[in-house]
């Protein structure tokens, strides 16, 4: 990005109207990817000078144990529901999960899910890192996921959405192909970087379960209805990407997983969805569309 300028220069302006239509495999209209955030929050992390890890003094019992619920209960419930309806996950991973709770990572890997990096912990932020520190974070992510799963990460969702002005250039330099941190489009597109090729992968905060339940205060059934409306519209328009970003500690709750499973059932039955993983969408796009 252009640091210090009013326009960070992340991408070219390309209005939605008049674009050539993107073609997905088998004539599908919308690429649908489900993104469970598999995260580890620390009980007593060190302080980042730019952002507090927890809103309350440590231990933030409800904050911490709510997240821990995702790994003890929610993941297993969500993963089973996704597998039942043929949805692989594209995991935004706190890579320290590979050390702390490898059984969760191994379960996701055995289901054919893809992993990309969401930092080391969701309680360690990139704000304030110098270049060497940020390189260490990226190299750690690549190495840790490779050792745990054999996969080479292709994507990045910044830890707790904390960035530096050089993050996008660095992940492109390390050979990653997509970022999930830019929310300007319903289709992939080129991101300006110093070297390599990086595309933006449509993720979503608007239909993220965290926004659904804690920003928009939706009931579980309202959230399910929101996802179905989002899907219907993007499938009608065609050539689009729909991401369903989830947290097992939220969507895996007993009052929420049932309505959510109806969304998976709906999308799987509709027939217009390319139900896939973020890395597969990136590979397909980069082959189809020249940089």
């Amino acid at each position: 990005m252009r640091e210090g300028e009013k326009d960070p220069g992340l991408y070219d302006f390309r209005p939605y109207r008049g674009r050539p239509k993107l073609a997905w495999p088998d004539g599908k209209q919308v690429a649908v990817w489900v993104s469970p955030n598999i995260e580890f929050y620390e009980l007593d992390p060190p302080a980042n000078p730019h952002r507090k890890s927890w809103p309350r003094p440590h231990p933030d019992v409800v904050g911490y144990s709510h997240r821990d619920y995702g790994n003890r209960v929610g993941h297993w419930r969500l993963a089973e529901a996704m597998s039942r309806h043929g949805f692989p996950g594209s995991v935004s991973l706190s890579v320290a999960m590979c050390q702390h709770l490898p059984e969760v990572v191994a379960d996701a890997a055995a289901r054919g899910w893809e992993f990309f990096s969401h930092g080391i912990y969701n309680t360690r932020y990139s704000y304030g890192m110098d270049e060497a520190q940020e390189r260490a974070l990226i190299e750690d992510s690549i190495r840790t996921v490779r050792e745990a799963t054999g996969q080479t990460i292709k994507g990045w969702l910044a830890p707790a959405l904390t960035h530096t002005p050089r993050t996008l250039d660095l992940i492109a330099e390390y050979g990653l192909s997509y970022t999930c941190d830019l929310y300007h489009d319903d289709q992939p597109g080129e991101v300006h970087v110093k070297s390599g090729r990086l595309i933006s992968m449509p993720y979503s905060l608007e239909v993220n379960d965290h926004y659904g339940f804690f920003v928009y205060n939706m009931s579980p059934r309202d959230y399910a209805d929101t996802l179905i409306r989002q899907y219907q519209r993007l499938a009608d328009e065609g050539g689009t990407v729909m991401c369903i970003p989830l947290h097992a500690y939220l969507i895996g709750q007993p009052h929420r997983i049932g309505p959510f499973e109806e969304v998976l059932r709906h999308i799987a039955a509709d027939g217009r969805a390319w139900i896939t993983r973020s890395g597969d969408i990136a590979d397909h796009y980069m082959q189809q569309v020249a940089a």
Binding site: F40, Q99, Q133
Partner: peptide, 20 residues
């Protein structure tokens, strides 16, 4: 600008929970 190097140390990064 850089962070205290300790911010990139992870002394509890091992099998299991980060507490007893």
């Amino acid at each position: 600008m850089s962070l205290d190097p300790a911010y990139l140390d992870y002394p509890l990064r091992k099998r299991g929970m980060d507490h007893g």
